[in-house]
């Protein structure tokens, strides 16, 4: 890794997500690569949900973090391979939990569409989403869709608190 590439990674290491500021773009897996080309540095980012309104802000934040360090680079948005929550770092998941958002608890590995049917989580089962506040697995899904496209709404039946769950994608 060249010094320029290293410097770019260092400049971008702390850039946080505009919607969930406790987690960095690197933790989320949005920041994919920094590479040297004949035309200079290229920073590769990938969108999360197709309609995520934070993407424009993320691109601007990446650009200004690089500019602040005087590093000229182009920011390129790349669709493939499609972003998945499986790329989220363990450190990132822990930060989400501490912030009050249950991180994705299973992989987003593809299942056949025909068999992809509504499955209600069984309270207390190994598959349960764990409450980020009290740690109980006795939780229930209130809605598949929450305050942002990437989250679902849950409720803890033990501490009675509602909480956000970052959906596997």
């Amino acid at each position: 890794m060249s010094t320029r590439v290293q410097a770019a990674w260092a400049a971008l290491d702390d850039v946080s997500d505009p919607e969930i500021p406790v987690i960095t773009l690197r933790d989320l897996g949005i920041l994919r690569d920094v590479r040297e080309t004949d035309d200079g540095l290229e920073v590769i980012i990938t969108p999360t949900y197709s309609g995520c309104p934070a993407m424009g802000q993320i691109e601007d934040d990446v650009r200004s973090a690089l500019q602040a360090q005087g590093i000229p680079a182009r920011v390129i948005t790349q669709l493939a391979p499609a972003w998945t929550t499986d790329w989220m770092t363990e450190a990132g998941k822990e930060k989400l939990r501490a912030y009050g958002i249950a991180p994705p608890h299973r992989t987003a590995a593809a299942t056949s569409v025909v068999r992809f049917m509504a499955r209600r989580p069984v309270s207390g089962a190994a598959d349960a989403v764990v409450c980020p506040r009290c740690g109980s697995g006795n939780t229930v899904e209130s809605s598949y869709f929450g305050s942002t496209a990437c989250k679902a709404l849950y409720k803890c039946l033990d501490c009675q608190e509602p909480f956000d769950y970052f959906k596997p994608y």
Partner: peptide, 9 residues
């Protein structure tokens, strides 16, 4: 690439 993203949604 668009299909892969849209499928998840």
């Amino acid at each position: 690439a668009i299909a892969a993203k849209s499928l998840k949604e």
